[in-house]
Design a binder for these strands. Sequence first.
DNA 1: ACTAACAAACGGACCAGTTGGTATGTTGGG
DNA 2: CCCAACATACCAACTGGTCCGTTTGTTAGT
Lengths: 186, 186
Amino acid sequence: MDTKSHLIETATTLFQQKGYKTVGLNEILKACNVTKGALYHHFPNGKDELLVTCLLALKEDITTDIQTIFSKHLSTKDAIISMIDTLIHSFEKTGTITGYTFSSIVSEMATMSEEVRKACSDLYENIEHIYCTKLLEDGFSKEAATAMSLLLTASIEGAMMLCLTQQSTDPLKTIAKLLPNIMEKF
Amino acid sequence: MDTKSHLIETATTLFQQKGYKTVGLNEILKACNVTKGALYHHFPNGKDELLVTCLLALKEDITTDIQTIFSKHLSTKDAIISMIDTLIHSFEKTGTITGYTFSSIVSEMATMSEEVRKACSDLYENIEHIYCTKLLEDGFSKEAATAMSLLLTASIEGAMMLCLTQQSTDPLKTIAKLLPNIMEKF
DNA sequence: ACTAACAAACGGACCAGTTGGTATGTTGGG
DNA sequence: CCCAACATACCAACTGGTCCGTTTGTTAGT
């Protein structure tokens, strides 16, 4: 394979595994036996240009991948289930999630210490617990409350990520309108 | 205020704004006029210990904050709306989201270039578009499909973050069970 | 009341290693 | 001959971290 493609593939994997800041140029270079001269020949603007190239290629891959899954299934429901299933299997196999999102690249979570991971996990647990308690007061069943509190946590967390990337508060606003409707129907 | 607290507060803010890896010790030190000797006196294990301390303190703050909001409102619905509203206002005021989540700390999004942000934004747009198209085929109205595709994107994205922090596939599994139910009721 | 002893709380120089980036040299195909 | 495609050597800037000296406050003994 040509040097440039080799560089992109290796860098993409490393970025996904460890995050952009964590991965140094030398690490990428060593991983695919390419010298600095070659890198700056193909990417005159250095690391940043390499990242952008990786993201653009990845975007195409992910989009067609999801597109394929959706064309295979009749309803959105089935497609979503199949898609999440793919994610779950990938996680169980590799121990991390790299597909269908950029967050693994812009997140340093994978490289954080166990203590840090635990602190983050504890926070989400606290939040979910608050939600769950209130939902039980609202009259939800135990199972429904548990599932719903997770949906609340996840969708708000995800909406925050979307707001940051879009530089807009629209995602949170939409979620805020939708979640009450959903809760009422349960 | 004592040096240690000062250090924690300054570091927390910087970590939230720029991400852990991006912020150097010297930057923190300069920002609160503290020397390296003082830092390593209070945090013998250096940067990592400082981060963990920040996270633990932040966890308490966030938890009690959300707890307060939830105790003020009668139903979960009202509490969630109020909470998201707080997030939206905070975003509109400061230009970024730092509250109620750790993702701003473990994410490098804020420090990424405009090109990178755009690439991420485009990916989410692609994904949402796929969802939306399928939902319209399913018979959803235009507004419902738009809102629902955002909920799907956000909740899956959030669930992935939860899986990474919890080192478990449970969040995605729960979401996979819940989302079909929700889609059917619309 | 005076002081010796000790420790906590720093201040700041210094360190090796690594970072992204550049400048120059070499090579092989058209 | 020329130019793309590298390779090599090198660079300043910065990274987190260590070491040791100094100040300040507290305690204990006489």
